[in-house]
Simulated scan of single mutants.
Amino acid sequence: MDNQTAVTTFLLWGFSSFPDLQHLLFAVIFFSHVTILAANGSIMMAIKLSHNLHTPMYFFLCGLSFSETCATMVIIPRMLVDLLSLSKTISLPECATQMFFFFGLAANNCFIMAAMSYDRYTAIHNPLNYHMLITGSICCQLMMASFLVGFFISLCIVMTVFNLSFCDSRIIQHFFCDISPVVSLACDYTFIHEMILFVLSAFVLVGSFILIMISYVFIVSIVVKMPSAKGRYKAFSTCSSHLSVVSIHYGFASFVYLKPKNSESFHDDMLMAVTYTVLTPLLNPIVYSLRNKEMQIALKKVIGNISRFILPLQRGNR
C-alpha cells in the first residue's frame, strides 16, 4: 500500500480503563471462548458424522459454525493476551491483517445466512423438487461466493482505511482494530472516505438483510395459506432458529456499523462489540441445538461416542 504514515504501531487500549477487572474479564472471556470452540466444534462434528444431517440446511450451518469459529480466533486470543499484558501494542501490518480477516469472515457470515434463508424458502415453496433445485454443487457455489464476496469487500475496506495517513495519537479506543477507532486516528480522513466505508458496510449488512427478508416474506405468504395447522407449525419451526440467529447478529452489528460515529461513542461501541465477537458466536450453536431435534439427537450420539472413547483410556491410565 502507498501508505505515507508517521505511525508504525498502535496501542489497543481495550479494557485498560478497568484495571481492577482485567483478571475477571480474562476468566469470563476465556471460558466463553472455550465454550464457543467446543459448541461449534461439536456441531460441525455432528453434521459430519450424521448422514441424516447431510442436507443443504446443515451444510450451510456447518459453514456458518466454521466461519464464526475462525472469526473468534482472529479477535479473542489477542484480546486475552492484552488483558494480561502490560504491552498492548500492535503493528500496522498486524492491525490491517486482523481487520481484513475479521470483516471478511463477518461479511461471509451475513451472506451464508442469506443463503440459508433462500434454502428455507426453496424447501417450503417447492418441497418435491427441493433436492433438484438445491444440489450439493449449488450449495458449494453459494458458500464459495459468500467467501469471495465477503473477503473482496473486506479488502476494499482495509485498502481504504490503511491508505490513510496516521499521525499524532496512536491509541485505538478498542480491543481490536475496528474501523471507526482506527480511522479516527487518521489525519486525512474525509467525508468521501466515510461514505465509501459506510456504503461497503451497508452493502454487507443491509444487502444481505434485504435478501433474508425477501425470502421470509415469501415464506410467510406460503405458510399462512397452508390448510394444515401441523404443516404451518413444522414450516415455522424449521425457520425459527435461523430467524433467532439473524435477529441477534444483525441487531448488534447494525447498531455499531450503521449509526453515526463520534469519539464519544467508541466506548459504547466497544462494549457492544463484545456481543458480536463473544456473545453471538456463543448463542448461535445454543440456539440451533436447543431448537432443533435432529441436531440434539446427533449431538447426543457424538457426545456418547466421545465418552465411550475416553472412558477406556482413563481406566487404562489408572
Rank of each mutant, 00 (worst) to 15 (best):
residue 38 A to F: 13
residue 117 S to E: 02
residue 217 V to D: 10
residue 187 C to R: 13
residue 75 I to L: 02
residue 77 P to F: 04
residue 224 V to A: 09
residue 82 D to T: 11
residue 234 K to M: 07
residue 288 Y to E: 10
residue 309 F to E: 04
residue 48 K to E: 10
residue 149 V to T: 11
residue 182 V to F: 05
residue 150 G to V: 07
residue 3 N to S: 14
residue 62 C to G: 10
residue 228 S to H: 10
residue 86 L to R: 01
residue 217 V to G: 08
residue 269 D to R: 09
residue 145 A to C: 13
residue 31 F to Q: 08
residue 92 L to Y: 09
residue 115 A to N: 01
residue 136 G to F: 03
residue 125 H to G: 06
residue 288 Y to K: 03
residue 126 N to C: 11
residue 33 H to S: 13
residue 16 S to A: 14
residue 121 Y to C: 11
residue 226 M to T: 08
residue 190 T to H: 02
residue 277 T to G: 13
residue 191 F to G: 14
residue 34 V to I: 15
residue 230 K to P: 01
residue 29 I to P: 00
residue 93 P to V: 04
residue 169 S to T: 13
residue 317 N to I: 15
residue 107 A to R: 12
residue 43 I to N: 00
residue 57 M to D: 13
residue 59 F to T: 12
residue 170 R to N: 15
residue 313 L to V: 11
residue 30 F to C: 11
residue 36 I to D: 06
residue 198 F to D: 05
residue 5 T to N: 08
residue 81 V to Q: 15
residue 249 H to C: 02
residue 188 D to F: 09
residue 149 V to K: 00
residue 196 I to Y: 09
residue 58 Y to R: 13
residue 260 P to C: 02
residue 232 R to V: 06
residue 101 F to N: 11
residue 277 T to D: 10
residue 96 A to E: 04
residue 291 R to N: 14
residue 95 C to M: 04
residue 237 S to F: 03
residue 27 A to K: 14
residue 287 V to G: 01
residue 7 V to F: 02
residue 291 R to G: 13
residue 264 E to T: 08
residue 247 S to F: 13
